[in-house]
């Protein structure tokens, strides 16, 4: 006796809808220009994403992003997440996607200085805002003090959570240069590390805080 439930159509409804999103941007989004210039106000008004009250998408949405201080123009779908745009069109694969539902923090980037999950942020919502990723932490070959402390304190194991962990810590240190351990714990409460590197993350942030206290 065949089961004629709706789930019998090869795949469940969920699997279709759910997976139809995965990595959509990787192929669809394209990076058209790159500029080291700081974005000028008002210039973004030419892109589709900057238009107001007009219907845009689903495909071919031009978008200006300021990523790590450089202005980048990408073309995305409306459904393209910021994580997909960064990892796909912009090839900034430091930002990781591990749960794709905002539960693990591997995709954490700073948006106007605040840590957010780039997997639950639409790329269009980052238009005209400052995006900072792990690739923007070092100045050329010179590591930031936070990165240096992560190296020295062995605050990485497999390293997959590291970019998100770093961005949450940076978000904290930018607001609070000398956080207590409790504040560090709270700041990375949304960053899952399956290797259990947390004690060394706490030590690394404390080391940065201590050096700031001295200087």
């Amino acid at each position: 006796m065949a089961d004629h439930s709706k789930r019998d159509k090869g795949l469940s409804r969920r699997s279709f809808l759910r997976s139809a999103s995965a990595g959509a941007a990787a192929a669809a989004a394209a990076c058209s220009t790159t500029s080291k210039n700081k974005p000028k106000s008002g210039k973004g008004a030419t892109t589709a994403a900057a238009q107001r009250d007009a219907v845009i998408g689903p495909q071919g949405v031009a978008l200006e992003l300021e990523v790590n201080g450089a202005k980048r123009t990408v073309t995305v779908e409306t459904r393209t997440t910021l994580a997909e745009a960064l990892r796909g069109a912009l090839d900034l694969t430091g930002t990781k996607v591990a749960c794709d539902r905002g539960a693990c923090g591997a995709c954490t980037v700073l948006l106007d200085g605040a840590p957010v999950c780039s997997c639950l942020t639409l790329a269009v919502d980052a238009a005209g805002r400052r995006v900072q990723t792990v690739e923007g932490l070092a100045a050329g070959d010179k590591l930031s003090p936070l990165q240096q402390a992560f190296v020295e304190c062995d605050a990485t194991q497999c390293g997959y959570c590291t970019p998100g962990m770093l961005m949450s810590c940076k978000g904290l240190l930018d607001r609070n240069p000398r956080p207590s351990e409790a504040e560090v714990r709270a700041a990375v409460a949304g960053n899952l590390c399956r290797c259990g590197t947390y004690p060394h993350v706490f030590a690394a942030v404390a080391r940065v805080g201590a050096s700031k206290a001295k200087g």
């Binding site: 809808l17 900057a50 238009q51 219907v55 845009i56 689903p58 409306t78 459904r79």
Partner: peptide, 8 residues
């Protein structure tokens, strides 16, 4: 995620 239109 299915494609959708967007109005800002």
């Amino acid at each position: 995620m299915k494609p959708f239109e967007l109005v800002n």
